[in-house]
Structure formats: structure tokens, C-alpha cells
């Protein structure tokens, strides 16, 4: 456990000592800020029109602002995750520092968990910026905080899953660009798999849709924790890290 934390600290140091973390945080803050501005603008205009029409149905910040924004974050996350994970192992393999880690008295799992955890923390830092925007909603309106918290839990689970996949892909190559591009491809594929259920209800289409990461986020976005979604993400995290461990082991036999 201590070693996991040592590795995690070192990785966080690497993210924050280089421009990577700041670049990602800035880009994410800008993109999310734009989404937030638009969503809120739409909400305000609609509110004013309803007032003019004399309608009195109360508008719901959770349903009309927070929920679509959260699902936007979950999609934007797909694009950011490859940039977070691509260096994790590829960089160490290229520079030879992997030899230091492997010849130190550490378990593979400690190295893997440390690296994955650092990626998850950076991802959580991105999410923190969205919280900054949401704070304004709480200052000027009164949305329910519970669905929002559930949404964040969903984002973290989904992020953890994709980050574990990215970590695995990063062990396969020495080249960060290849790791990043492959992770991006896989993330995108896992997103669009959902479309297959849009026009077809055959078993294969439903099975494909089941593997879509996005479809499992819907319930979280509504503020509902469905055990099947939690199980899906947790299984994904476990499998991703498991494959990473197998891949690291095979590194020694192959290299």
C-alpha cells in the first residue's frame, strides 16, 4: 500500500511538473465552461419565455441543466482519457525507467494501482472544475445535490473504467502516440456501440449496446444508482487492471 502511494505521488508529480496537467485542466475548463454557458443561457431564455406565456410549471435545474451537462462531461471525458493514460507505461518503457521499477522490491499490482490511481486523481481534478461551475447553480438556484453527487459517482466509475483500459493499452507499446491513438479509438468505439440498439432490437444489437460505456451512464445522470451499471464499471476496472498485470508480466518474457 505504501509503495502504491509512492508510485502514485511520483506520477502526480510528473503530471503536475510538466505542462500535461495544466494543459488538460485548461482545455477542459474552457470546453466545459462553454457548455455550461450555453446550457444556462438556454435555460434562462426558456424561463423568461415561459413567464411571458404565463406558464407556471416549475422549471427543474437538475433535469434541464445538470443532467445534460453531466452526460456532456461523460462524452468529453472520452477524449481526455487517452491523453491522461498514454504516457503511464509507454514513457517508462521508452526511457528505460521501467527497469528501475521492475528491479525494485515491488509487486506489479502496486505499480499498476499507483499509476491508475494517479490517473484517476487527475481525472477527478478535471471534474472538480465542473463543480466550480455548478456552485453557481447552488448560489442562485436550489437544485437537488443528491442527483449531482450520484452523477459524479457515475463519472468517476466510468472514468476509472476507461483509465484502466488506457493503462492497459499503454503497457503494449513504447510509443506514447500509439498508446494515445489506440486508447482514443477504443474509447470512441465503446461510446458508439450504443447506436446499434437505436434501430435494431436483435440480440446482437442489445449485446453490443450493453458494452457501450455511455449507455451505463444514463441512470447515473438521472441520479439513479443502478446496480447493473455499477457492476459493469467495476468489472471493467477490474478487467482493465487485470489485463495490465498480465501484460506487465509478459513484458519480461517477451523483451
Amino acid at each position: 500500500m505504501r509503495n502504491t502511494w509512492t508510485i502514485c505521488r511520483k506520477e502526480l508529480g510528473a503530471y503536475f511538473a510538466s505542462p500535461i496537467a495544466y494543459l488538460l485542466l485548461t482545455m477542459f475548463a474552457l470546453i466545459f465552461g462553454f457548455f455550461f454557458w450555453n446550457a444556462l443561457g438556454y435555460f434562462v431564455i426558456e424561463g423568461m419565455q415561459m413567464q411571458l406565456r404565463g406558464e407556471t410549471i416549475p422549471m427543474n435545474l437538475n433535469e434541464e441543466v445538470i443532467r445534460p451537462l453531466l452526460s456532456n462531461v461523460s462524452v468529453v471525458g472520452l477524449f481526455f482519457i487517452p491523453m491522461i493514460t498514454m504516457r503511464l507505461f509507454a514513457e517508462e518503457k521508452r526511457s528505460g525507467t521501467i527497469e528501475l521499477l521492475i528491479t525494485s522490491p515491488l509487486h506489479d499490482l502496486e505499480i499498476i494501482l499507483g499509476k491508475w490511481l494517479s490517473a484517476l486523481i487527475l481525472y477527478a481534478c478535471l471534474l472538480l472544475f465542473t463543480a466550480l461551475n455548478f456552485t453557481f447553480l447552488f448560489m442562485y438556484g436550489n437544485p437537488d445535490w443528491k442527483p449531482l453527487a450520484v452523477g459524479y459517482l457515475g463519472l468517476l466509475l466510468q472514468g476509472g473504467f476507461l483509465l484502466a483500459l488506457g493503462t492497459f493499452i499503454s503497457t503494449l507499446t513504447k510509443n506514447q502516440i500509439i498508446a494515445g491513438a489506440a486508447t482514443f479509438g477504443v474509447c470512441l468505439m465503446l461510446w458508439v456501440l450504443e447506436w446499434s440498439s437505436g434501430y435494431d432490437s436483435a440480440t446482437w444489437a442489445l449485446v453490443l449496446a450493453y458494452f457501450s460505456v455511455i449507455s451505463h451512464f444514463d441512470a447515473f445522470g438521472r441520479g439513479v444508482i443502478e446496480s447493473k451499471d455499477v457492476v459493469f464499471y467495476l468489472t471493467g476496472i477490474f478487467l482493465g487492471l487485470f489485463f495490465t498485470a498480465r501484460s506487465m508480466e509478459s513484458l519480461r518474457w517477451r523483451s
Binding site: K10, G13, A14, A17, S18, S95, G96, T97, E99, L100
Partner: peptide, 9 residues
Amino acid sequence: ESPPIYPEM
């Protein structure tokens, strides 16, 4: 062969 150092540390 090449010292296993992290350039950013």
C-alpha cells in the same frame, strides 16, 4: 545501461 532517471524530477 542508461541511468533510469525521470527528467522532470
